[in-house]
Amino acid sequence: MPAFTFEKISPPVRRAPAATPPQKPRGLISQMINRFAERRARRALRASPRGDEKLAK
């Protein structure tokens, strides 16, 4: 019987969350669509009281 035994020592477990991959820059078309959508949403918010009156009739 051997006097020494060798065991495989596993590396310590990391408790930190995994690093998130960097986000890709958005494409030009996506940026343009976002701009149009923001403007449309602002216009809808400004016009909503007037628009509700038109729908009620």
Rank of each mutant, 00 (worst) to 15 (best):
Phe4Tyr: 10
Leu55Tyr: 14
Gly27Asp: 14
Gln31Met: 05
Gly51Gln: 13
Arg50Asn: 03
Ala56Glu: 15
Pro2Leu: 05
Phe4Pro: 00
Gln23Lys: 11
Ile33Arg: 13
Met32Cys: 01
Ala18Thr: 02
Arg39Thr: 03
Phe36Met: 01
Ala37Asn: 09
Arg14Tyr: 12
Glu7Trp: 02
Ala44Val: 03
Met1Ile: 03
Leu45Asp: 07
Arg42Glu: 02
Arg50Pro: 00
Arg35Ile: 00
Met1Arg: 08
Lys57Asp: 15
Gly27Asn: 12
Pro49Phe: 08
Met1Ser: 06
Ala19Cys: 04
Pro12Asp: 04
Arg40Cys: 07
Pro2His: 05
Pro12Gly: 00
Ala44Ile: 03
Arg26Asp: 15
Pro11His: 11
Ala44His: 10
Pro12Leu: 05
Arg26Lys: 11
Glu38Pro: 10
Asp52Met: 13
Arg14Lys: 13
Phe36Lys: 08
Thr5Glu: 11
Val13Leu: 02
Glu53Cys: 10
Arg50His: 06
Phe6Arg: 02
Gln31Arg: 13
Ala16Ile: 07
Lys24Ile: 15
Gln31Ser: 05
Phe36Gln: 02
Lys57Cys: 13
Thr5His: 08
Lys24Pro: 15
Leu45Pro: 00
Leu28Asp: 03
Pro25His: 08
Val13Gln: 01
Val13Phe: 01
Ser48Gly: 07
Asn34Ala: 08
Ala3Gln: 08
Asn34Ser: 07
Thr20Met: 02
Arg43Cys: 11
Arg46Gly: 10
Arg50Asp: 00
Lys57Glu: 15
Arg42Phe: 06
Asn34Glu: 06
Ala19Gly: 05
Ala41Leu: 11
Val13Glu: 00
Phe36Tyr: 02
Ile29Asn: 06
Pro17Asp: 13
Ala37Trp: 07
Gln23Phe: 06
Ala18Gln: 05
Pro25Tyr: 07
